[in-house]
Computed example of a mutant assay.
Amino acid sequence: MSAKLAQAFIFARGGSKGVPRKNIKPLNGTPLIAYSIDCALSCPSLGHVVVSTDDNEIAEVSKLYGAEVPFMRPAILAGDSASEWHAWRHAVEAMENLGSPFEILVSLPTTSPFRAVEDVEACLMVLDQNPDVDVVITVRKAERSPYFNMVQVLPDGNAEIVCKSGEAFQRRQDVPEVFDITTVAYAVRTKLIKHANGLFEGKVRAVEVPAERALDIDTPYDFLVAELLAKHIDPNGSRKWQR
Rank of each mutant, 00 (worst) to 15 (best):
Ser112Val: 13
Arg189Leu: 05
Asp132Cys: 04
Thr219Glu: 10
Ala67Lys: 01
Ala40Glu: 08
Ala185Thr: 10
Leu215Pro: 02
Val209Asp: 09
Leu105Cys: 04
Asn97His: 11
Lys240Ser: 13
Asn56Phe: 10
Phe9Ile: 07
Leu124Gln: 03
Asp38Leu: 13
His48Arg: 15
Ala206Gly: 00
Phe169Val: 04
Val135Met: 05
Gln152His: 07
Ala196Gln: 08
Thr138Met: 09
Glu160Ile: 02
Leu105Lys: 01
Val61Arg: 01
Ala196Pro: 10
Asp128Val: 05
Leu64Ile: 06
Leu127Tyr: 08
Asp216His: 09
Asn130Lys: 05
Val69Ala: 06
Leu5Ala: 11
Ala12Cys: 10
Glu68Asn: 11
His195Thr: 15
His232Leu: 03
Ala168Ser: 14
Val225Leu: 13
Arg89Gln: 15
Glu160Asp: 02
Gly14Lys: 01
Gly79Cys: 05
Ala12Trp: 02
Pro31Trp: 08
His195Leu: 10
Phe102Leu: 03
Met95Ala: 04
Arg115Gly: 14
Pro101Trp: 03
Asn197Trp: 00
Gln129His: 11
Val61His: 02
Ser83Thr: 10
Asp132Gln: 14
Ala196Phe: 09
Glu201Val: 12
Gln173Lys: 07
Phe148Ser: 10
Lys22His: 12
Val50Gln: 14
Glu93Gln: 15
Ala59Lys: 03
Pro220Tyr: 07
Arg172Asp: 09
Leu32Gly: 06
Glu160Ser: 03
Ser145Asn: 14
Arg189Gly: 08
Asn28Pro: 00
Leu108Ala: 07
Glu121Phe: 08
Cys39Met: 14
Thr190Glu: 04
Phe169Trp: 11
Pro31Ile: 13
Ala211Tyr: 00
Tyr186Gln: 12
Met72Gly: 02
Phe9Lys: 02
Ala94Tyr: 09
His48Ile: 04
Glu208Lys: 06
Val19Asn: 12
Ala78Asp: 08
Trp241Ile: 00
Asp132Gly: 02
Ala34Arg: 05
Asn236Gly: 11
Val51Thr: 01
Val225Tyr: 06
Ser145Val: 05
Leu127Ile: 12
Glu68Cys: 04
Gly79Phe: 08
Ala196Cys: 11
Leu77Arg: 03
Phe114Asn: 10
Val209Ser: 06
Asp222Phe: 09
Val120Gln: 01
